[in-house]
């Protein structure tokens, strides 16, 4: 019974990580690839950690699994967020009709401006000269 439960946990986790890899390969845009890899990959690795902890079964293994899942839950979104910010600042445009973030993001102080100021500056390196609000 426990073997069936852990097997199903590991199988669904591996399936989610396969979905993450397929999304990483097939999505047309860097940001879509990033969100596919981050979200599906996180849930997949959490399920695999749970399967391993339950399979090993001892208290030490369960504590290891708990700490590892806490670690993954903390670090994977942070890594994806940092990479997305770095990619946006390095000039990779998202595949959207209108870039709502253009001109509102200060690259040095990482402050957002939400007023309706004219966001006329072209995206790229010249946004650095803008003053924060």
């Amino acid at each position: 019974m426990i073997a069936l439960v852990t097997g199903l946990l590991a199988f669904s986790g591996a399936l989610l990580m396969l979905i993450a890899a397929v999304g990483l390969l097939r999505m047309p845009d860097f940001y879509m690839r990033m969100q596919a890899a981050a979200k599906a990959g996180t849930l997949g690795i959490l399920l695999i950690v749970a399967a391993t902890g339950i399979t090993l079964g001892s208290l030490s293994a369960l504590l290891h699994a708990f700490l590892a899942s806490l670690f993954f839950l903390l670090t994977t979104p942070i890594a994806a967020h940092l990479l997305g910010r770095a990619a946006y600042l390095s000039g990779i445009r998202p595949m959207v009709l209108e870039d709502e973030l253009a001109g509102r993001y200060h690259p040095a102080t990482h402050e957002l401006r939400s007023n309706n100021a004219p966001a006329a500056s072209t995206p790229g390196s010249d946004r650095i000269e803008e003053t924060p609000a």
Binding site: G13, T55, T76, A80, S90, I92
Partner: peptide, 26 residues
């Protein structure tokens, strides 16, 4: 096509290897 693509793919590769190691331990 870009460096962030490769970095996010490396990140997913690392977590896939971690998953493989965990299943091997199980």
């Amino acid at each position: 096509p870009t460096i962030p693509d490769r970095v996010i793919a490396l990140d997913l590769t690392a977590s896939l290897v971690v998953g493989l190691l965990l299943l091997l331990g199980a």
